[in-house]
Design a protein around this nucleic acid. Structure first.
Lengths: 212, 212
DNA sequence: TCTATCATCGAACCGCGTTCGATAACCGAA
DNA sequence: TTCGGTTATCGAACGCGGTTCGATGATAGA
Protein backbone atom coordinates (compact mmCIF):
# COMPACT_ATOMS: atom_id res chain seq x y z
CA UNK A 1 0.00 0.00 0.00
CA UNK A 2 2.61 2.50 -0.99
CA UNK A 3 -0.24 4.02 -2.90
CA UNK A 4 -0.04 6.24 0.14
CA UNK A 5 2.59 8.04 -1.84
CA UNK A 6 0.40 8.73 -4.82
CA UNK A 7 -2.41 9.73 -2.51
CA UNK A 8 -0.47 12.25 -0.52
CA UNK A 9 0.89 13.34 -3.86
CA UNK A 10 -2.35 14.02 -5.65
CA UNK A 11 -4.96 14.52 -2.98
CA UNK A 12 -4.30 16.73 -0.02
CA UNK A 13 -0.71 17.29 -1.12
CA UNK A 14 1.23 18.92 1.67
CA UNK A 15 0.14 20.40 4.98
CA UNK A 16 -1.19 16.90 5.41
CA UNK A 17 -1.24 15.52 8.90
CA UNK A 18 -0.75 11.86 9.70
CA UNK A 19 -4.18 11.66 11.23
CA UNK A 20 -5.82 13.21 8.20
CA UNK A 21 -3.88 10.93 5.93
CA UNK A 22 -4.93 7.89 7.95
CA UNK A 23 -8.53 9.01 7.87
CA UNK A 24 -8.46 9.48 4.11
CA UNK A 25 -7.07 6.00 3.71
CA UNK A 26 -9.71 4.62 6.04
CA UNK A 27 -6.96 3.27 8.23
CA UNK A 28 -5.48 3.88 11.60
CA UNK A 29 -2.78 6.32 12.48
CA UNK A 30 -0.34 3.68 13.59
CA UNK A 31 -0.72 1.62 10.43
CA UNK A 32 1.32 4.06 8.43
CA UNK A 33 4.30 3.26 10.60
CA UNK A 34 4.33 -0.28 9.43
CA UNK A 35 5.16 0.89 5.94
CA UNK A 36 7.36 3.79 6.78
CA UNK A 37 9.59 4.77 9.66
CA UNK A 38 8.80 8.44 9.87
CA UNK A 39 7.00 11.25 8.17
CA UNK A 40 10.21 12.46 6.60
CA UNK A 41 10.71 9.10 5.01
CA UNK A 42 7.15 9.07 3.75
CA UNK A 43 7.34 12.45 2.09
CA UNK A 44 10.85 11.69 0.90
CA UNK A 45 9.57 8.64 -0.92
CA UNK A 46 6.71 10.60 -2.37
CA UNK A 47 9.10 13.27 -3.55
CA UNK A 48 11.35 10.75 -5.20
CA UNK A 49 8.33 9.17 -6.80
CA UNK A 50 7.17 12.32 -8.57
CA UNK A 51 10.76 13.08 -9.49
CA UNK A 52 10.81 9.75 -11.28
CA UNK A 53 7.69 10.70 -13.16
CA UNK A 54 9.12 14.03 -14.17
CA UNK A 55 12.28 12.45 -15.45
CA UNK A 56 10.36 9.77 -17.31
CA UNK A 57 8.17 12.36 -18.99
CA UNK A 58 11.17 14.21 -20.37
CA UNK A 59 12.77 12.77 -23.46
CA UNK A 60 16.25 13.86 -24.41
CA UNK A 61 17.11 13.44 -28.10
CA UNK A 62 20.52 11.90 -28.62
CA UNK A 63 21.25 14.27 -31.47
CA UNK A 64 20.32 17.40 -29.54
CA UNK A 65 22.82 19.69 -27.91
CA UNK A 66 23.73 18.21 -24.51
CA UNK A 67 23.40 21.51 -22.72
CA UNK A 68 19.98 22.05 -24.26
CA UNK A 69 19.00 18.68 -22.90
CA UNK A 70 20.23 19.59 -19.46
CA UNK A 71 18.21 22.77 -19.70
CA UNK A 72 15.10 20.82 -20.60
CA UNK A 73 15.52 18.57 -17.59
CA UNK A 74 16.15 21.50 -15.28
CA UNK A 75 13.07 23.32 -16.47
CA UNK A 76 10.96 20.20 -16.07
CA UNK A 77 12.08 19.78 -12.49
CA UNK A 78 11.49 23.45 -11.81
CA UNK A 79 7.96 23.27 -13.12
CA UNK A 80 7.25 20.19 -11.07
CA UNK A 81 8.38 21.92 -7.91
CA UNK A 82 6.48 25.07 -8.81
CA UNK A 83 3.35 22.98 -9.17
CA UNK A 84 3.87 21.06 -5.96
CA UNK A 85 5.74 23.37 -3.67
CA UNK A 86 6.33 20.79 -0.96
CA UNK A 87 8.65 18.94 -3.30
CA UNK A 88 11.42 21.49 -2.97
CA UNK A 89 12.02 21.15 0.71
CA UNK A 90 12.22 17.40 0.56
CA UNK A 91 14.38 17.21 -2.51
CA UNK A 92 16.84 19.42 -0.69
CA UNK A 93 16.95 16.95 2.14
CA UNK A 94 17.89 13.84 0.33
CA UNK A 95 18.79 14.44 -3.25
CA UNK A 96 21.35 11.82 -4.06
CA UNK A 97 20.10 9.26 -1.56
CA UNK A 98 16.98 8.07 -3.24
CA UNK A 99 16.88 6.05 -6.44
CA UNK A 100 15.17 8.47 -8.77
CA UNK A 101 17.15 11.47 -7.68
CA UNK A 102 20.34 9.50 -8.23
CA UNK A 103 19.04 8.47 -11.63
CA UNK A 104 18.34 12.09 -12.49
CA UNK A 105 21.79 13.07 -11.33
CA UNK A 106 23.20 10.44 -13.60
CA UNK A 107 21.01 11.45 -16.50
CA UNK A 108 22.25 15.01 -16.40
CA UNK A 109 25.77 13.72 -16.07
CA UNK A 110 25.41 11.52 -19.11
CA UNK A 111 24.64 14.57 -21.19
CA UNK A 112 27.81 16.22 -19.97
CA UNK A 113 29.80 13.12 -20.77
CA UNK A 114 29.35 14.15 -24.39
CA UNK A 115 31.25 17.36 -23.73
CA UNK A 116 35.04 17.69 -23.56
CA UNK A 117 35.34 18.21 -19.80
CA UNK A 118 37.35 16.66 -17.06
CA UNK A 119 35.64 14.35 -14.61
CA UNK A 120 35.91 16.97 -11.94
CA UNK A 121 34.42 19.64 -14.16
CA UNK A 122 31.49 17.39 -14.92
CA UNK A 123 31.00 16.63 -11.26
CA UNK A 124 31.03 20.29 -10.40
CA UNK A 125 28.73 21.22 -13.25
CA UNK A 126 26.10 18.62 -12.50
CA UNK A 127 26.15 19.48 -8.82
CA UNK A 128 25.84 23.15 -9.61
CA UNK A 129 22.89 22.67 -11.92
CA UNK A 130 21.06 20.44 -9.50
CA UNK A 131 21.90 22.69 -6.59
CA UNK A 132 20.62 25.68 -8.49
CA UNK A 133 17.44 24.00 -9.61
CA UNK A 134 16.53 22.50 -6.27
CA UNK A 135 17.69 25.43 -4.21
CA UNK A 136 16.02 28.15 -6.18
CA UNK A 137 12.85 26.14 -6.68
CA UNK A 138 12.64 25.44 -3.00
CA UNK A 139 12.62 29.15 -2.32
CA UNK A 140 9.26 29.23 -4.04
CA UNK A 141 7.84 27.24 -1.18
CA UNK A 142 8.62 29.88 1.38
CA UNK A 143 7.75 33.49 1.76
CA UNK A 144 5.75 35.28 -0.86
CA UNK A 145 5.38 32.26 -3.05
CA UNK A 146 2.56 30.97 -0.94
CA UNK A 147 0.53 33.81 -2.35
CA UNK A 148 -1.90 31.62 -4.22
CA UNK A 149 -3.10 30.04 -1.03
CA UNK A 150 -4.10 33.31 0.57
CA UNK A 151 -7.60 34.67 0.68
CA UNK A 152 -8.14 37.59 -1.67
CA UNK A 153 -8.11 40.31 0.95
CA UNK A 154 -5.17 38.73 2.70
CA UNK A 155 -3.19 38.61 -0.50
CA UNK A 156 -4.02 42.18 -1.33
CA UNK A 157 -2.88 43.33 2.08
CA UNK A 158 0.34 41.41 1.66
CA UNK A 159 1.09 42.85 -1.75
CA UNK A 160 0.29 46.32 -0.58
CA UNK A 161 2.65 45.96 2.35
CA UNK A 162 5.31 44.65 0.00
CA UNK A 163 4.92 47.54 -2.40
CA UNK A 164 5.05 49.99 0.46
CA UNK A 165 8.27 48.46 1.72
CA UNK A 166 9.90 48.64 -1.66
CA UNK A 167 8.78 52.16 -2.35
CA UNK A 168 10.08 53.28 1.01
CA UNK A 169 13.68 52.48 0.10
CA UNK A 170 15.80 55.52 -0.36
CA UNK A 171 17.19 55.78 -3.92
CA UNK A 172 20.23 57.50 -2.48
CA UNK A 173 21.27 54.65 -0.23
CA UNK A 174 19.86 51.85 -2.36
CA UNK A 175 20.22 52.95 -5.97
CA UNK A 176 19.96 49.46 -7.37
CA UNK A 177 16.71 48.62 -5.63
CA UNK A 178 15.29 51.82 -7.03
CA UNK A 179 16.41 50.85 -10.49
CA UNK A 180 14.83 47.41 -10.48
CA UNK A 181 11.64 48.11 -8.54
CA UNK A 182 9.58 48.05 -11.66
CA UNK A 183 11.18 44.88 -12.93
CA UNK A 184 10.56 43.29 -9.60
CA UNK A 185 6.90 44.11 -9.56
CA UNK A 186 6.34 42.72 -13.03
CA UNK A 187 8.56 39.67 -13.00
CA UNK A 188 7.43 36.08 -13.35
CA UNK A 189 9.24 33.61 -11.14
CA UNK A 190 9.70 31.22 -14.00
CA UNK A 191 11.50 33.80 -16.12
CA UNK A 192 13.79 34.60 -13.22
CA UNK A 193 14.65 30.97 -12.82
CA UNK A 194 15.25 30.46 -16.52
CA UNK A 195 17.47 33.52 -16.77
CA UNK A 196 19.69 32.35 -13.96
CA UNK A 197 19.82 28.86 -15.37
CA UNK A 198 20.89 30.24 -18.72
CA UNK A 199 23.70 32.18 -17.11
CA UNK A 200 24.89 29.01 -15.45
CA UNK A 201 24.68 27.03 -18.66
CA UNK A 202 26.44 29.78 -20.57
CA UNK A 203 29.33 29.44 -18.19
CA UNK A 204 29.28 25.72 -18.75
CA UNK A 205 29.27 26.08 -22.53
CA UNK A 206 32.20 28.41 -22.30
CA UNK A 207 34.10 25.92 -20.19
CA UNK A 208 33.42 23.18 -22.71
CA UNK A 209 34.41 25.23 -25.72
CA UNK A 210 37.56 26.43 -24.02
CA UNK A 211 38.77 22.84 -24.07
CA UNK A 212 37.81 22.58 -27.75
CA UNK B 1 16.38 43.14 24.96
CA UNK B 2 16.81 42.11 21.39
CA UNK B 3 20.05 40.73 22.68
CA UNK B 4 17.92 37.65 22.41
CA UNK B 5 19.03 37.67 18.83
CA UNK B 6 22.70 37.64 19.61
CA UNK B 7 22.12 35.00 22.23
CA UNK B 8 20.27 32.60 20.03
CA UNK B 9 22.90 33.43 17.47
CA UNK B 10 26.00 32.61 19.48
CA UNK B 11 24.89 30.34 22.28
CA UNK B 12 22.56 27.47 21.61
CA UNK B 13 22.26 28.43 17.97
CA UNK B 14 19.46 26.48 16.38
CA UNK B 15 17.40 23.55 17.55
CA UNK B 16 16.63 25.98 20.30
CA UNK B 17 13.23 25.71 21.90
CA UNK B 18 11.35 28.67 23.26
CA UNK B 19 11.38 27.20 26.74
CA UNK B 20 15.10 26.58 26.63
CA UNK B 21 15.67 30.09 25.33
CA UNK B 22 13.53 31.56 28.08
CA UNK B 23 15.37 29.53 30.69
CA UNK B 24 18.74 30.68 29.39
CA UNK B 25 17.57 34.26 29.57
CA UNK B 26 16.28 33.71 33.07
CA UNK B 27 12.87 34.81 31.91
CA UNK B 28 9.46 33.36 31.30
CA UNK B 29 8.27 31.72 28.15
CA UNK B 30 5.62 34.30 27.47
CA UNK B 31 7.98 37.22 27.84
CA UNK B 32 9.54 36.55 24.48
CA UNK B 33 6.22 37.26 22.85
CA UNK B 34 6.29 40.83 24.01
CA UNK B 35 9.32 41.46 21.83
CA UNK B 36 8.43 39.28 18.93
CA UNK B 37 5.27 37.93 17.40
CA UNK B 38 6.36 34.43 16.57
CA UNK B 39 9.35 32.15 16.46
CA UNK B 40 9.71 32.68 12.73
CA UNK B 41 9.98 36.40 13.30
CA UNK B 42 12.54 35.89 16.02
CA UNK B 43 14.82 33.71 13.96
CA UNK B 44 14.18 35.85 10.92
CA UNK B 45 15.46 38.88 12.79
CA UNK B 46 18.46 36.95 14.02
CA UNK B 47 19.20 35.79 10.49
CA UNK B 48 19.00 39.30 9.13
CA UNK B 49 21.21 40.48 11.94
CA UNK B 50 24.08 38.16 11.14
CA UNK B 51 23.61 38.87 7.45
CA UNK B 52 24.23 42.50 8.26
CA UNK B 53 27.43 41.59 10.06
CA UNK B 54 28.61 39.51 7.15
CA UNK B 55 27.98 42.30 4.71
CA UNK B 56 29.65 44.84 6.94
CA UNK B 57 32.73 42.68 7.29
CA UNK B 58 33.18 42.46 3.55
CA UNK B 59 34.82 45.43 1.86
CA UNK B 60 34.51 45.84 -1.87
CA UNK B 61 37.24 47.96 -3.48
CA UNK B 62 35.86 50.42 -5.97
CA UNK B 63 38.67 49.72 -8.34
CA UNK B 64 38.26 45.97 -8.29
CA UNK B 65 36.44 44.02 -10.93
CA UNK B 66 32.70 44.17 -10.16
CA UNK B 67 32.19 40.47 -10.71
CA UNK B 68 35.08 39.68 -8.40
CA UNK B 69 33.39 41.79 -5.79
CA UNK B 70 30.14 39.93 -6.25
CA UNK B 71 32.07 36.71 -5.88
CA UNK B 72 33.59 37.90 -2.63
CA UNK B 73 30.18 38.74 -1.23
CA UNK B 74 28.73 35.44 -2.32
CA UNK B 75 31.54 33.47 -0.73
CA UNK B 76 31.20 35.45 2.48
CA UNK B 77 27.51 34.65 2.69
CA UNK B 78 28.18 31.02 1.90
CA UNK B 79 30.73 30.73 4.66
CA UNK B 80 28.39 32.37 7.12
CA UNK B 81 25.66 29.89 6.32
CA UNK B 82 28.09 27.00 6.41
CA UNK B 83 29.13 28.07 9.88
CA UNK B 84 25.59 28.59 11.12
CA UNK B 85 23.47 26.15 9.21
CA UNK B 86 20.17 27.45 10.51
CA UNK B 87 20.72 30.68 8.60
CA UNK B 88 19.99 29.10 5.25
CA UNK B 89 16.45 28.04 5.91
CA UNK B 90 15.48 31.43 7.25
CA UNK B 91 17.18 33.46 4.58
CA UNK B 92 15.19 31.47 2.06
CA UNK B 93 12.01 32.49 3.77
CA UNK B 94 12.34 36.20 3.73
CA UNK B 95 15.25 37.37 1.69
CA UNK B 96 14.16 40.71 0.33
CA UNK B 97 11.79 41.54 3.16
CA UNK B 98 14.24 42.40 5.89
CA UNK B 99 16.48 45.43 5.90
CA UNK B 100 19.88 43.81 5.72
CA UNK B 101 18.94 41.31 3.09
CA UNK B 102 17.56 44.13 0.99
CA UNK B 103 20.76 46.05 1.55
CA UNK B 104 22.80 43.08 0.43
CA UNK B 105 20.63 42.70 -2.64
CA UNK B 106 21.30 46.32 -3.42
CA UNK B 107 24.99 46.01 -2.76
CA UNK B 108 25.37 43.22 -5.26
CA UNK B 109 23.28 45.18 -7.69
CA UNK B 110 25.47 48.24 -7.35
CA UNK B 111 28.43 46.24 -8.52
CA UNK B 112 26.52 45.17 -11.61
CA UNK B 113 25.55 48.75 -12.28
CA UNK B 114 29.14 49.20 -13.32
CA UNK B 115 28.68 46.67 -16.11
CA UNK B 116 27.05 47.36 -19.48
CA UNK B 117 23.81 45.46 -18.89
CA UNK B 118 20.15 46.23 -19.22
CA UNK B 119 18.11 46.76 -16.09
CA UNK B 120 16.40 43.47 -16.67
CA UNK B 121 19.69 41.65 -17.08
CA UNK B 122 20.94 43.11 -13.84
CA UNK B 123 17.76 42.14 -12.07
CA UNK B 124 18.01 38.60 -13.35
CA UNK B 125 21.69 38.32 -12.54
CA UNK B 126 21.41 39.53 -8.98
CA UNK B 127 18.44 37.32 -8.33
CA UNK B 128 20.27 34.36 -9.80
CA UNK B 129 23.35 34.91 -7.69
CA UNK B 130 21.38 35.33 -4.50
CA UNK B 131 19.14 32.43 -5.35
CA UNK B 132 22.15 30.26 -5.99
CA UNK B 133 23.96 31.30 -2.86
CA UNK B 134 21.04 30.98 -0.51
CA UNK B 135 19.57 27.92 -2.14
CA UNK B 136 22.74 25.90 -2.37
CA UNK B 137 23.92 26.97 1.06
CA UNK B 138 20.62 26.01 2.57
CA UNK B 139 21.07 22.50 1.27
CA UNK B 140 23.97 22.21 3.67
CA UNK B 141 21.52 22.38 6.50
CA UNK B 142 19.70 19.25 5.46
CA UNK B 143 20.74 15.72 4.83
CA UNK B 144 24.33 14.65 5.10
CA UNK B 145 25.57 18.08 6.01
CA UNK B 146 24.54 17.57 9.60
CA UNK B 147 27.39 15.12 9.78
CA UNK B 148 29.42 17.13 12.24
CA UNK B 149 26.72 16.88 14.86
CA UNK B 150 26.67 13.10 14.85
CA UNK B 151 28.43 10.91 17.34
CA UNK B 152 31.48 9.20 15.96
CA UNK B 153 29.98 5.76 15.57
CA UNK B 154 26.79 7.22 14.17
CA UNK B 155 28.70 9.19 11.58
CA UNK B 156 30.76 6.19 10.61
CA UNK B 157 27.64 4.11 10.13
CA UNK B 158 26.13 6.84 7.99
CA UNK B 159 29.18 7.20 5.79
CA UNK B 160 29.45 3.47 5.40
CA UNK B 161 25.84 3.23 4.33
CA UNK B 162 26.41 6.08 1.90
CA UNK B 163 29.44 4.43 0.37
CA UNK B 164 27.59 1.16 0.05
CA UNK B 165 24.75 2.85 -1.74
CA UNK B 166 27.05 4.55 -4.19
CA UNK B 167 29.09 1.45 -4.87
CA UNK B 168 25.94 -0.52 -5.49
CA UNK B 169 25.01 1.52 -8.54
CA UNK B 170 25.37 -0.37 -11.75
CA UNK B 171 27.94 1.24 -14.05
CA UNK B 172 25.92 0.01 -17.00
CA UNK B 173 22.75 1.86 -16.07
CA UNK B 174 24.41 4.78 -14.31
CA UNK B 175 27.68 5.41 -16.11
CA UNK B 176 28.04 8.93 -14.84
CA UNK B 177 27.65 8.07 -11.19
CA UNK B 178 30.33 5.45 -11.66
CA UNK B 179 32.61 8.03 -13.22
CA UNK B 180 32.30 10.57 -10.44
CA UNK B 181 32.12 8.29 -7.41
CA UNK B 182 35.67 9.05 -6.47
CA UNK B 183 35.24 12.78 -6.93
CA UNK B 184 32.15 12.63 -4.79
CA UNK B 185 33.87 10.87 -1.94
CA UNK B 186 36.71 13.36 -1.88
CA UNK B 187 34.92 16.61 -2.55
CA UNK B 188 34.70 19.56 -0.20
CA UNK B 189 31.35 21.30 -0.13
CA UNK B 190 32.98 24.67 -0.36
CA UNK B 191 34.79 23.80 -3.58
CA UNK B 192 31.56 22.56 -5.07
CA UNK B 193 29.83 25.78 -4.20
CA UNK B 194 32.65 27.90 -5.57
CA UNK B 195 32.81 25.96 -8.82
CA UNK B 196 29.12 26.44 -9.46
CA UNK B 197 29.33 30.09 -8.55
CA UNK B 198 32.18 30.56 -11.00
CA UNK B 199 30.15 28.99 -13.77
CA UNK B 200 27.34 31.39 -13.03
CA UNK B 201 29.67 34.38 -12.94
CA UNK B 202 31.38 33.25 -16.14
CA UNK B 203 28.00 33.36 -17.83
CA UNK B 204 27.47 36.82 -16.42
CA UNK B 205 30.86 38.04 -17.62
CA UNK B 206 30.10 36.75 -21.06
CA UNK B 207 26.80 38.58 -21.10
CA UNK B 208 28.52 41.79 -20.08
CA UNK B 209 31.29 41.51 -22.63
CA UNK B 210 28.84 40.64 -25.39
CA UNK B 211 27.39 44.12 -24.98
CA UNK B 212 30.91 45.57 -25.16
C1' DT C 1 -5.39 -27.22 14.66
C1' DC C 2 -1.70 -24.74 16.23
C1' DT C 3 1.64 -21.17 15.87
C1' DA C 4 4.30 -17.51 13.96
C1' DT C 5 4.59 -13.86 10.99
C1' DC C 6 2.05 -10.14 8.79
C1' DA C 7 -0.78 -6.22 9.27
C1' DT C 8 -3.79 -3.05 11.61
C1' DC C 9 -5.49 -0.22 14.96
C1' DG C 10 -6.11 3.91 18.10
C1' DA C 11 -5.34 5.48 22.74
C1' DA C 12 -1.68 7.73 25.04
C1' DC C 13 2.78 10.17 25.31
C1' DC C 14 5.58 14.01 24.53
C1' DG C 15 7.48 18.30 22.99
C1' DC C 16 6.47 22.14 20.67
C1' DG C 17 4.71 27.00 19.54
C1' DT C 18 1.30 29.79 21.11
C1' DT C 19 -2.49 32.09 24.01
C1' DC C 20 -4.14 34.12 28.04
C1' DG C 21 -5.12 36.39 32.23
C1' DA C 22 -2.80 37.86 36.26
C1' DT C 23 0.55 40.85 38.07
C1' DA C 24 4.03 43.68 38.96
C1' DA C 25 7.02 48.00 37.96
C1' DC C 26 7.17 52.46 36.27
C1' DC C 27 5.49 57.27 35.35
C1' DG C 28 3.12 61.46 34.21
C1' DA C 29 -1.12 63.80 35.77
C1' DA C 30 -4.42 65.25 39.31
C1' DT D 1 0.46 61.28 47.47
C1' DT D 2 -2.50 58.94 44.71
C1' DC D 3 -4.29 57.17 40.71
C1' DG D 4 -4.77 55.29 35.76
C1' DG D 5 -2.42 53.56 32.10
C1' DT D 6 1.32 51.94 29.56
C1' DT D 7 5.36 48.86 29.80
C1' DA D 8 7.06 44.50 30.83
C1' DT D 9 7.00 39.86 32.84
C1' DC D 10 5.49 35.53 34.00
C1' DG D 11 4.03 30.51 33.66
C1' DA D 12 0.04 27.51 33.55
C1' DA D 13 -2.80 25.70 30.03
C1' DC D 14 -4.24 24.78 25.12
C1' DG D 15 -4.00 22.48 20.72
C1' DC D 16 -1.68 20.20 17.42
C1' DG D 17 1.26 16.87 15.39
C1' DG D 18 4.63 13.10 15.16
C1' DT D 19 5.64 9.04 17.40
C1' DT D 20 5.29 4.81 20.62
C1' DC D 21 3.12 0.89 22.29
C1' DG D 22 0.64 -3.14 23.35
C1' DA D 23 -3.34 -5.44 21.88
C1' DT D 24 -5.80 -7.59 18.34
C1' DG D 25 -7.13 -9.64 14.22
C1' DA D 26 -5.85 -12.01 9.67
C1' DT D 27 -3.22 -15.39 7.09
C1' DA D 28 -0.65 -19.36 6.02
C1' DG D 29 2.58 -23.09 6.50
C1' DA D 30 3.46 -27.34 9.53
Amino acid sequence: MLGTVALLDEAGADALTFRALAARLGGGVGSIYWYVGSKDELVGRAADHVLGEVSAATTLPDDADPVDNVRALAMAVYEAIARRRWLGAYLMQDFGFQPNSMALYDRIGQQLQRLPLTTRQRFHAVSAVIGYVVGVSAELDHGPAAIEEMADDEREAFLERLRTTWRAVDPATHPFLAEVTEEFEQHRDEDLFAAGLDLLLAGLRQQASAAE
